[in-house]
């Protein structure tokens, strides 16, 4: 749906353009390569210093797979919650006009700059057993979120949802509103227009945002350990396991990181073509 089939394709998959037009200027190439090296070298270091021979012994513990499973489940759940709440929020920010919208947008992106540990403390103050809302929740239902897997999802959603909102809002702003207007003139309600016209239009943006949010949730550490604590199988995600392994056994920490890295690369590479728009 993204590119019409009839478009002539002089450069399939973006490669092999006419010469001259594509000569890369050194002023761009040099910093680009430097940037690439800066991002990739630390990962290479991890691979080079990995305790390959001891790897099987380090990775056979049940706690490793417990942590990995929990990480994947909670990151996916956090992405789901982010989609449910974040897409409508992005629509509100992009398509409506009300006083204080700029301020609201700034507030939405606040978790991006807030140190995650502070985010975790803030969540405790509100949703904790003695928190403003949490106290009421505990009294009414007996449910307390801290130290539960649901708490992990809450912490990860708090940190990851802004990525999705920003991405979807950008896509909505770039999308032509006239399609929605046309739908409205044809009698569609605003909700129908959103569902049938807007959503398909910004699907690539939603996909990209979801992948970003998932990746951020998977690597989440600070808010999780502060709000949800650390208990194997219940709230100990991979980053927490890596951190604690680092305290006593850096080799094990490297081994755990490799697993997380491999899974992330597999999932992100697998999703890229399907979800993210790659012109």
């Amino acid at each position: 749906m993204s590119t019409p089939r009839t478009t002539p394709a002089p450069h399939p998959r973006g490669r092999r353009r006419p010469r001259g037009a594509t000569r890369v200027p050194a002023a761009l190439l040099l910093p680009a390569l430097l940037g690439l090296a800066f991002l990739v070298l630390p990962l290479l270091g991890l691979l080079i210093r990995a305790p390959w021979s001891a790897l099987p012994a380090l990775l056979t513990g049940p706690e490793v797979w417990q942590a990995l499973r929990l990480s994947l489940i909670s990151a996916t759940a956090a992405t789901g919650v982010s989609l449910l709440l974040g897409v409508p929020l992005a629509w509100l920010l992009a398509r409506t006009d009300f006083p204080g919208r700029r301020l609201l947008r700034a507030l939405v992106t606040l978790p991006l700059v807030l140190p995650p540990v502070v985010g975790g403390v803030a969540l405790l103050l509100v949703l904790g057993r003695a928190g403003i809302v949490g106290r009421w929740l505990d009294a009414a239902t007996g449910i307390t979120l801290p130290f539960t897997t649901a708490g992990v999802v809450v912490a990860e959603t708090f940190v990851a949802m802004p990525f999705l909102v920003i991405s979807v809002e950008g896509a909505l702003r770039a999308a032509d509103p006239r399609y929605e207007e046309a739908a409205a003139t044809l009698g569609a309600s605003r909700l129908t227009a959103f569902r049938r016209v807007t959503l398909p239009l910004v699907a690539p943006g939603i996909g990209a945002g979801a992948v970003l949010a998932w990746a951020r949730a998977l690597g989440e550490f600070g808010a999780t350990i502060t709000f949800a604590g650390n208990f194997p199988g219940r709230t100990q995600t991979m980053p927490l396991a890596v951190y604690l392994a680092m305290e006593s056994d850096p080799q094990a920490a490297i081994a755990l990181s490799l697993i997380l890295l491999a899974v992330s690369i597999a999932v992100l590479a697998g999703l890229r073509d399907r979800w993210m728009s790659t012109p």
């Binding site: 103050l125 904790g128 057993r129 003695a130 801290p146 604590g229 650390n230 305290e247």
Partner: peptide, 19 residues
Amino acid sequence: PATYEQDVKGALTKVELGE
């Protein structure tokens, strides 16, 4: 325990906050 904290200050904070 409900949680194994990463350092002693973490364990202390959880009591202070009533969690």
